[in-house]
Write a protein that binds this DNA or RNA. Structure first.
Lengths: 347, 347
DNA sequence: CTGAAAGCGCTTACAG
DNA sequence: CTGAAAGCGCTTACAG
């Protein structure tokens, strides 16, 4: 680098003020002046510094995103939607992949703060005291993808209801012994709420919850495989269906069953959660709770823009808005109605 | 916000110079002074502005990454590795998802330039005149993930040889009618080179290339499905195996075959390319060319750091270094040796 | 060991 | 319509 606005001004024979005006197309400048400036810019291959501009304007047009696992197709799809929506509004994306490390979240929140990002998207669902403290102390526009109980602006689906729907769906298909491969209980929505939805549906339909057919994983494929392996070893034959808290775990479970010569849905029915790419790749296709990833991305950006707007006008007393989007139970081919056969259970 | 270094200095009763010294731990300051400063920082919840620092230091610690499709597991995995390696060195990641749009590449290269990123990673493989022009004019440290013929620093595998190996593997298993689901010929490596590797292997082994069993896709699952559908409709029964230029296309092809009641590898053998997550999820497991994604990420960062170092010392006359990493043909269960049965072909 | 002051590259009242 | 000058929040020679 090295060519700056001053150089352009010199070459064009005008003031830096005028060059700045041409660049920012705000106030009117004469055609002649504009032409001279454009020529000088071209000639010098001048690229204005957004760093200097940001410092002066107190606005970076940067959005920081904290994402637990970018290799998750579900999360990457949402990120991609956020990026696209943001790009159309002239914002750039600072991305921090967190790899399940809660301490890193605080570290990156601080970096974002130091980078003076205009807003933050927090896709992480685990909380610790440091995170809580940061969020209390710093009033930077922020949208979360889970109900953290901190009265923050949120975009999400109703995880409780979605899990309830999934479980009730199996029950209505005649299943009464439904295993669950749940998530991480430290995750407030994807973990806890989905688990609670499962419990509530069982309760409402008069099914006694049996903890021996419930396992807790990390949403990834490998853990679905491993936990299904455990379930088959320790409780095999005692359940007719499985509800997994993520599609990846559902797919892992299906693969595990295949390796045990069990057929889905003939021997065991499976329902997943997310509606990611894999759910359509696996055979049989996975019946699952579809999350509206495009809408999640868009709503996140819209909400963030609102907050940034408010922030610019120093009116930050609004109560935190929560956007709850609709999920959809998409029937594919991994669940069977077992009314007619009575199940292969004793009971 | 609003608290700046001056405020800290005032509260601590020292100069801004001293606050800056405490912050940057460069020169020695007395314990007493440091303590006062730290207290003031704590009390005011001060967060230094990296924007101001960047402007002054002429260094942003920002790396821009242009990625064609972040929802591709292969690319996301590499990005994740880059992010992690970079994070440990104190760099942050500016990400631009390009969605196959060559024009957007130039747009984002310019944004990166304006953001004064210290370096750029370009995972895109298509070139146009605007991109070429940008790369010529601007000497910002940059690492590409493909041989673009522009003498740029590069990290990649030998796509030609890898594709050659994949094809030769099938040939040695007795296949002589090998369909190919290739990539985009505008992509210099993943597209062209893999195609050329296939052609070369066929030639070396005395196999006449038949263009009627070659198709060109976009690496994504859906195109693999669609093109396999075409192949079956137009040339079904005339080939015993398929080489796909990406695992995603290979999986799409396998699913298509499944929907046609064709079994892999009994009826048709399939070999993929990448070694992504899906290749281990699909049944049968996919025999594929494994790319070393972790090493690609690490080598990319190392090379970039070298370039940035050189750039800082204004010695940019080094010839562009190219790092070629080893691929590996990983045998799983999707290819069959057909010597013993002679194939179900006439020939 | 500590501080006053210049300057990084812009924007934006203010004046003309 | 145009320009001179102050200032955004830091760092860094330079002097003491």
């Amino acid at each position: 680098m090295g060519v700056k606005i001053k150089d352009v001004a010199r070459v064009a024979g005008v003031s830096v003020t005028s060059v700045s005006r041409v660049l920012n197309k705000g106030e009117h400048v004469s055609e002649k002046l504009e032409k001279k400036v454009r020529q000088a810019i071209e000639q010098l291959n001048y690229s204005p510094s957004l760093i200097a501009k940001s410092l002066k304007r107190n606005k970076t047009n940067l959005i920081g995103v904290i994402i637990p696992d970018i290799t998750s197709n579900f999360q990457a799809t949402i990120l991609s939607n956020i990026e696209e929506t943001l790009g159309r509004r002239g914002y750039n994306l600072l991305v921090s992949n967190i790899v399940e490390d809660t301490d890193k979240v605080v570290k990156y929140l601080n970096v974002f703060q130091e980078m003076r990002v205009d807003g933050i998207v927090l896709m992480h669902e685990k909380l610790n005291d440091h995170i809580r403290l940061f969020l209390e102390k710093n009033q930077i526009p922020l949208v979360v993808h889970a109900e953290l109980g901190l009265n923050l602006p949120t975009v999400m689906i109703d995880d409780f209801k979605a899990a309830y729907d999934a479980t009730a769906y199996l029950i209505r298909k005649g299943h009464r012994r439904i295993a669950m491969i749940a998530g991480d209980m430290r995750d407030l929505c994807a973990g806890r709420k989905r688990y609670e939805g499962y419990l509530a549906a069982c309760k409402d339909y008069g099914i006694t919850v049996d903890e021996s057919i419930i396992r807790f994983g990390d949403y990834k494929l490998a853990s679905g495989y491993r936990l299904m392996n455990e379930l088959l070893a320790e409780a095999g034959g005692s359940f007719t269906s499985v509800f997994a808290a993520s599609d990846d775990m559902a797919v892992g479970a299906i693969n595990c069953m295949a390796d045990h010569q069990l057929r889905v849905p003939d021997d065991i029915s499976v329902i997943g959660f997310d509606g990611n790419q894999m759910s359509d790749v696996i055979r049989p296709r996975l019946t699952t709770i579809q999350q509206p990833m495009d809408k999640i991305g868009q709503a996140t950006v819209e909400l963030l823009m609102e907050l940034i707007e408010q922030n610019d006008h120093a009116q930050r007393s609004h109560p935190a808005r929560t956007i709850v989007l609709e999920h959809e139970l998409v029937e594919k081919a991994s669940c069977r109605d077992i009314h007619e056969r009575g199940g292969f259970l004793k009971s």
